[in-house]
Amino acid sequence: MNARDRILARVRAAVEGAPEAPPVVRDYLVSHTPDDPAAVLDLLHENLVDYRARVHRTDEAGIGALVAGLLAARGAGSVLVPRGLPPEWLAEAACAHVEDGAESTAADLDAVTSVVTGCALAIAETGTLVLDGGPAQGRRRITLVPDHHICVVRVPGQIVASVPQAMARLDPGRPLTWISGPSATSDIELDRVEGVHGPRTLDVVLLSP
């Protein structure tokens, strides 16, 4: 018998005659937040800040200048541009634009200062951005290797209140990255310190129409 058959046989023998387990009751809340888009937006803002993301609000008319300002303040020599990024987001950015391509290596990405992406959605109750590799997001590695990530969230369309609401909208077939603040560790005396391997600076732009 191979390992697969042995394990399956052992599993079956182990639970044979065990009583049926009670059904799962999903009586937990779908959301902990009142259904008010302005309140949900404020909560997202507050929770992002609480985990040390820097949050900015703007509209379509102001995004070019805002992103250019963030890149300049960082002293960014170059910015990674995923496919499908709306051109107006980087229209005023003076630094070199680097298109991400399959041929660029991890070391190439390490030489780039910043990256600008969109997202799939943002979760207000936890201050979380979810990326799914869709348009304006690119491969997972481009939001990981550069030390500075600017992530644009469309208000209100891309904001949900809660984790259950997010799960219902996400496609498990896509590679998903949930980001809640810049990288951090609690490994030294169980105290949170921001900034380890992922981007140490996370700018979130809440973009209204």
Partner: peptide, 28 residues
């Protein structure tokens, strides 16, 4: 996703969670 981060590191959400399904073309 709601109970683990709060029980573990006492955070509303841990900084990074990765979810992957098999392999993805050109990514990872």
């Amino acid at each position: 996703l709601q109970t683990l981060p709060r029980s573990s590191t006492a955070e509303r959400m841990n900084p990074y969670t990765s979810m992957w399904t098999g392999t993805a073309d050109g990514d990872g």
